[in-house]
Simulated scan of single mutants.
Amino acid sequence: MADLCKRFRLCKHGECLCSDPDTLLMAAFADGDNFAFDALYRRNYGWVQHLAHQILRNQQDAQDIAQDAFLRIIASRKNWQATARFRSWMHRIVVNLCLKRQKSLRRQETISLEELSEDFDELPPELLSTGEDLAKEAAEVLQDALSHLPQRQRQVLELRLQGYSISQIARLLGCSRGAVDALLHRARKSLRKRLGKD
């Protein structure tokens, strides 16, 4: 424990984080102990999901956020620094993920046709109408087209439209950047075909 405290500078600025079990577990995980992550997950998954549910009021979304939060922990392993107690740090991660999810859900309620037209440069022009009735109908057509994509293609495309980078999508889905690029290519091709462009 003393080695971890010294290596990760857990005692500084008048505050010692060595007495916090979760922070010590995170230090151990950052130091290469995979069992420490298992312990962190068991100790913290419940309150993380509960916090997400309090914000989002949706059980499935809360579970997704909890999983994403722990993926962030894994991704931060190599560069982790003890700037705060683990739960304070995790709390910020969960809140930020929830706020991002709320923003994306509001955004998905009305698909951005302009954004899709940038990503899919040959969408039928009638889908880009700006009249209220036509825009609503176009959004329904696009939602239908998206719903018919294979699950993996739809996941990648939705994450991309939510603003995630290729690297972030690869990390979240546990695959390579090349695999994400290939899935995006197939999703675009399938969507264009579904919309009558191929």
Score class of each variant (00 low, 15 high):
residue 42 R to F: 01
residue 181 D to E: 11
residue 42 R to M: 04
residue 101 R to K: 10
residue 98 C to A: 12
residue 46 G to S: 08
residue 184 L to Y: 10
residue 52 A to G: 07
residue 66 A to T: 06
residue 47 W to L: 06
residue 45 Y to C: 09
residue 14 G to M: 06
residue 148 H to G: 01
residue 73 I to L: 15
residue 39 A to N: 08
residue 15 E to S: 00
residue 175 C to L: 11
residue 73 I to P: 03
residue 148 H to V: 00
residue 99 L to A: 02
residue 171 R to K: 14
residue 125 P to I: 10
residue 21 P to M: 14
residue 7 R to C: 01
residue 4 L to S: 08
residue 7 R to A: 08
residue 72 R to V: 07
residue 3 D to L: 11
residue 192 R to L: 09
residue 72 R to P: 00
residue 138 A to W: 00
residue 9 R to E: 02
residue 13 H to Y: 10
residue 148 H to E: 03
residue 121 D to Y: 00
residue 86 F to E: 04
residue 26 M to S: 01
residue 170 A to Y: 12
residue 45 Y to E: 13
residue 155 Q to N: 14
residue 177 R to W: 05
residue 31 D to R: 09
residue 147 S to T: 06
residue 83 T to Y: 05
residue 47 W to C: 03
residue 53 H to K: 12
residue 136 K to H: 13
residue 135 A to D: 03
residue 131 G to A: 05
residue 146 L to Q: 03
residue 131 G to F: 01
residue 137 E to A: 11
residue 3 D to V: 12
residue 95 V to K: 15
residue 187 A to G: 05
residue 198 D to I: 07
residue 132 E to Q: 02
residue 176 S to A: 14
residue 40 L to A: 11
residue 61 D to C: 15
residue 117 S to F: 05
residue 158 E to N: 12
residue 129 S to E: 01
residue 83 T to I: 04
residue 149 L to P: 01
residue 91 H to P: 01
residue 33 D to T: 06
residue 55 I to V: 15
residue 60 Q to R: 13
residue 74 I to W: 13
residue 30 A to H: 07
residue 11 C to K: 15
residue 175 C to D: 05
residue 96 N to W: 00
residue 10 L to S: 10
residue 194 R to L: 01
residue 22 D to L: 11
residue 152 R to K: 09
residue 21 P to T: 13
residue 115 E to V: 10
residue 129 S to T: 06
residue 153 Q to I: 09
residue 165 S to R: 12
residue 84 A to W: 02
residue 173 L to T: 14
residue 149 L to K: 00
residue 83 T to H: 10
residue 111 I to M: 07
residue 130 T to N: 00
residue 91 H to N: 08
residue 33 D to Q: 13
residue 22 D to F: 07
residue 98 C to I: 02
residue 138 A to E: 02
residue 114 E to Y: 07
residue 22 D to K: 11
residue 33 D to A: 11
residue 63 Q to E: 15
residue 72 R to L: 05
residue 120 F to L: 15
residue 182 A to G: 01
residue 113 L to Y: 01
residue 142 L to T: 02
residue 115 E to F: 03
residue 20 D to S: 06
residue 132 E to V: 04
residue 24 L to S: 08
residue 108 Q to R: 14
